[in-house]
Design a protein around this nucleic acid. Structure first.
Lengths: 276, 276
DNA sequence: GTACAGTGTCCCGCGATGCGCAACGTCCGC
DNA sequence: GCGGACGTTGCGCATCGCGGGACACTGTAC
């Protein structure tokens, strides 16, 4: 605190960014005075800064005096995406995870319609595993560890929508009863990770944890999958820890988060029932 | 000119944005000194500004001292996309176009793989038209006015790839000979717009022009389509002008461009041959 | 029509602010 | 262990930007 850990941001830049930050999806339009009030600045000052931001293309004036984000913001974002995609950041980490654990490692994202899940990256273990989650393939949100990790951290309306919809049995142990799924997701939310056994593929288990955005809503999941005979309860802990670490480093780079891990009653359960 | 139309941007902001602008897809990583040299700033000055940008999350330091774009840039871009999508901006204009011309108006974009075209927005005329370009449907790049308008303004390698590939006949007048397609695209490039007749649908003509990014590469096309008996050569001019105006206003908002229109020998040709 | 409130824009003198030289710390590689 | 290149810090001076104030403009009330 007393130390200069907070580098005093030059006020002009700080103000400029504060003004830029006003323009989010909930309030995409601002007039000079509105914006000035919102950040607590004298109108002429805000006016000047907004003018500069407009001049730089970060803002743009509508028909009548209202500012919105401009194309420079768009362009900057496009350039950022090129470097900062989940896929790109996660790839080396997943490769390492697959090598270290000798299981299949996966990165799964929501599809654009946000009603399903698509696998983006997959690294094989030394003994290749037949898995329905091949890169590019879409899967429903209620079956499988990665899918459940994602679903558990989606808005409650979405969860309800899925639970009320058809819970198609993908494999032997797919959860198909709405109440059980709801209960199960509560548990996933509580402890911050999901496990599955034969929910998507015969003889295959999976563990996964979600990456969530600033509002706590899931955007992706990282997970491991392996054949039945290799699910060693004593290893789940360390595998989860490794997953968590990898996920956290990716998430951090993107300004996202990973829910806190609760490993407490972990090692006992997985074999007990396919629903856990 | 002589007037103060160039509002003197405060140098701190100007410098900050100049530094941010360095980070594009070709050079995503910069050290302090590199960046300082690139924008012609004393190292300590650049150092301070970069530090602020990092502090604000717009930049991020890699393992060893190299800066890349940070998550704030990503976030800003996401917020900009919410307001500035082609689809959103073009919709009201296309609606007006459809009403004024009483033809079908279309917005078409490249698909994510950039190997095909997908229709995003479509407004009907008073007499609905059966068209293969329904919203969401993908079409090959060599058949139809919008498709050709896009293809003509793609990198030459892409054009060659398509020309060398299979030029499937979609409809009676689809161009299927590579040399004719190449020749045709040259013409489209030259005059800045494309026309088609029965290339995708029997009895249907279309005109379209592309929206291109800062490098001149196509990102979308806007077009009109109508049934044979309504293709009035004398109207093509005014329709193209209207299209151009609409496209230009959308493009401008996104920092994109629309190629200059050459209307000169327009009205004579369309009926003469399906290939023009 | 007049009065008025709210907003966008411009001006300008004072003073905080951030500039960049110079110097120091740190890390490599011959 | 020495030299060069780069990252980081301190500090005194001039500049840069601050914001009160004034003005123009628009829409609204009466």
């Amino acid at each position: 605190m007393s130390r200069g850990d907070h580098v005093a941001t030059p006020q002009l830049l700080e103000r400029a960014f504060a003004l830029l930050a006003l323009f989010d999806e909930t309030t995409p339009e601002w007039t000079t005075t509105e914006a000035a009030r919102a950040v607590g600045l004298p109108v002429p000052t805000a006016h000047r800064i907004l003018g500069v931001l407009e001049h730089q293309g970060f803002l743009c004036r509508d028909e009548n005096k209202r500012f919105t984000l401009g194309h420079a913001a768009l362009r900057l974002g496009q350039r950022a995406v090129a470097v900062l995609s989940l896929e790109r950041l996660a790839t080396p980490l997943l490769e390492r995870l697959a090598a270290v654990t000798d299981e299949v490692s996966l990165l799964t994202e929501l599809n654009t319609r946000r009603d399903g899940v698509v696998c983006r990256v997959r690294f094989e273990s030394s003994q290749p595993l037949t898995l329905s989650v091949a890169p590019g393939r879409e899967l429903p949100l209620h079956a499988g560890a990665s899918q459940k990790a994602l679903l558990a951290f989606m808005p409650t309306e979405t969860v309800e929508l899925i639970c009320r919809g058809e819970l198609a049995p993908v494999c032997r142990a797919t959860i198909t009863r709405p109440d059980r799924l709801r209960e199960h997701l509560r548990e996933v939310r509580r402890r911050g990770w999901a496990i599955s056994f034969e929910e998507t593929d015969t003889g295959v288990w999976g563990i996964a944890l979600p990456i969530v955005d600033e509002r706590g809503v899931a955007v992706a999941a990282v997970g491991l999958a392996g054949p039945r005979n290799r699910l060693d309860p004593s290893q789940v802990r360390s595998q989860l820890t490794a997953l968590h670490e990898a996920a956290a480093s990716v998430a951090d780079r993107l300004g996202y988060n990973v829910p806190k891990l609760d490993l407490a009653p972990a090692a006992r359960r997985p074999r007990a029932t396919a629903s856990v």
